[in-house]
């Protein structure tokens, strides 16, 4: 039992839970509000590295470092949002992608802070409970993810959620009804991005050593593929999509399908991303609303 509660299975489950949260937050940004955030990993990575630097280099207590990193991510998102959110969606797309690239570049180049490719570590688990440290960490990530999903549910049926939906569908119209759309959009973007940063800080505990490879665009696209596959307009779209992609490949296939060890490390990641790409194309062509489909009017 203790063996099951620590090590590889818990590591995989924790990653899946973090990705579910990211995909649900992206659902709120893209599916609900219509913000094309192609820089998910920028905010996730900023939270992760800021937390690591506060904790390891400046010896700030765990929980305070976590909060500081989340706030910092939110402030950066607020600044970026002010500059780009009123542009057309193609400009928002490239600008967010660019910010993510900047984060990755700085994580690599600022060795005095991040130790570059050597890696920044060791980030401990939040609670020191001996053999149960990892499972406690998993439960924390799980609870926070469930809170995000519940929030996503509630926002949709609230007046605030309807305002967000109207921003997605027709922003000038919402504006003409006297809603401060640009401000609401900006704050919503900043808060959801800060939460992406919070899950970055959580993920740091799971991986222990932070290297720039972890903040590569692959993270962004994995989240996007999960959300599109699951159904971007559904609250559970991110959850279903993450289970159908990362859950299937990183847990089910890796654990239960006998694959030779050499193919496991070399070939599987390539085949996985190849299938992700193919699946994304097929979904957008033949079922653009994803597995869960769209609400009927």
């Amino acid at each position: 039992m203790v063996q099951f509660l620590s090590g590889y299975v818990m590591y995989t489950f924790s990653s899946i839970v973090v990705y579910i949260a990211l995909a649900t937050l992206l659902h709120l940004q893209f599916g609900v509000t219509g913000i094309v955030n192609f820089g998910v990993v920028g905010f996730f990575g900023l939270g992760m590295y800021a937390f690591g630097v506060f904790l390891i280099q400046y010896h700030i207590p765990y929980i305070i470092a976590m909060l500081l990193a989340t706030v910092l991510t939110g402030v950066v998102a607020l600044g970026l949002g002010r500059v780009i959110l009123q542009l057309d969606s193609q400009s928002i797309l490239v600008a967010t992608l660019a910010i993510a690239t900047v984060v990755e570049d700085l994580a690599t180049s600022e060795k005095w802070l991040t130790k570059g490719v050597i890696g920044l570590g060791t980030v401990p688990f939040p609670f020191d409970l001996g053999p149960y440290s990892q499972v406690a960490y998993f439960l924390l990530a799980l609870v926070l993810t469930i809170l995000i999903v519940i929030y996503a549910y509630r926002v949709e049926s609230s007046p605030y959620g309807r305002l967000l939906l109207s921003i997605r569908d027709n922003e000038p119209l919402a504006q003409s009804l006297g809603k401060s759309t640009s401000r609401q959009k900006l704050f919503f973007f900043a808060i959801t991005s800060a939460l992406m940063g919070l899950f970055g800080t959580l993920h740091a505990s799971n991986v222990h050593f932070l290297v720039p490879r972890m903040v590569s665009p692959g993270v962004t696209f994995t989240v996007w593929i999960a959300l599109i596959l699951g159904g971007r307009k559904k609250v559970l779209g991110g959850l279903i999509g993450t289970l159908a992609t990362i859950g299937l490949f990183d847990f089910v296939i890796e654990t239960f399908v006998p694959i030779p060890a050499s193919a496991q490390s070399q070939l599987m990641p390539v085949i996985k991303l190849w299938i992700y790409g193919l699946a994304l194309m097929l979904v957008l062509m033949y079922r653009p609303s994803g597995i869960l489909g769209e609400k009927k009017l």
Partner: peptide, 11 residues
């Protein structure tokens, strides 16, 4: 654009 990202991964 997202479709082209899928194609990009595939290729």
């Amino acid at each position: 654009i997202i479709l082209s990202v899928g194609l990009s991964f595939f290729l």
